[in-house]
Amino acid sequence: ELLATGCTFVIAPEQKARVTYDNILRLSDDPDVNDVIKFLRAREVVHFQRFGEGLRLARDKMNEKNVYYMNPSFDK
């Protein structure tokens, strides 16, 4: 859904980073490295979720009838 909104530039970096972290975890056998990579991967998931929430909130606000910065009658 989020990618269909045309805002892939916001979400794509987090998804690419998550895939990179998954690939590193497949190659690494060091528990200390894996712990750090798992933390970074979890952080990217949270960023993805927050960007999605922000996008939904912005879209909802744009659909409101009383949006002053886009309401031409307000400038009269």
Score class of each variant (00 low, 15 high):
residue 68 Y to V: 01
residue 24 I to W: 09
residue 39 F to N: 06
residue 73 S to E: 14
residue 65 K to L: 08
residue 25 L to P: 04
residue 44 E to P: 02
residue 60 D to P: 01
residue 65 K to H: 07
residue 51 F to C: 06
residue 36 V to E: 05
residue 9 F to G: 12
residue 27 L to F: 06
residue 13 P to C: 10
residue 64 E to G: 01
residue 64 E to Y: 00
residue 57 L to H: 07
residue 50 R to H: 07
residue 49 Q to E: 13
residue 58 A to I: 10
residue 42 A to K: 10
residue 70 M to Q: 08
residue 26 R to D: 14
residue 51 F to I: 06
residue 11 I to F: 07
residue 38 K to P: 00
residue 7 C to A: 13
residue 75 D to E: 13
residue 49 Q to D: 13
residue 49 Q to I: 11
residue 14 E to Q: 14
residue 33 V to R: 01
residue 36 V to F: 06
residue 76 K to D: 08
residue 56 R to N: 07
residue 26 R to C: 09
residue 4 A to G: 11
residue 5 T to Q: 09
residue 42 A to H: 05
residue 42 A to M: 08
residue 35 D to C: 01
residue 44 E to S: 14
residue 31 P to Q: 07
residue 27 L to V: 12
residue 2 L to K: 04
residue 58 A to G: 08
residue 35 D to Y: 03
residue 52 G to S: 08
residue 65 K to P: 03
residue 5 T to F: 00
residue 73 S to V: 13
residue 76 K to R: 15
residue 36 V to L: 12
residue 38 K to T: 12
residue 68 Y to F: 07
residue 59 R to A: 10
residue 32 D to S: 11
residue 54 G to I: 05
residue 12 A to S: 10
residue 22 D to E: 15
residue 56 R to I: 05
residue 5 T to C: 02
residue 19 V to Q: 15
residue 72 P to G: 05
residue 55 L to H: 03
residue 22 D to W: 06
residue 51 F to T: 02
residue 62 M to F: 04
residue 76 K to S: 09
residue 42 A to L: 09
residue 22 D to K: 13
residue 4 A to P: 00
residue 48 F to V: 01
residue 1 E to V: 11
residue 40 L to G: 03
residue 35 D to A: 13
residue 41 R to I: 05
residue 70 M to F: 10
residue 38 K to E: 13
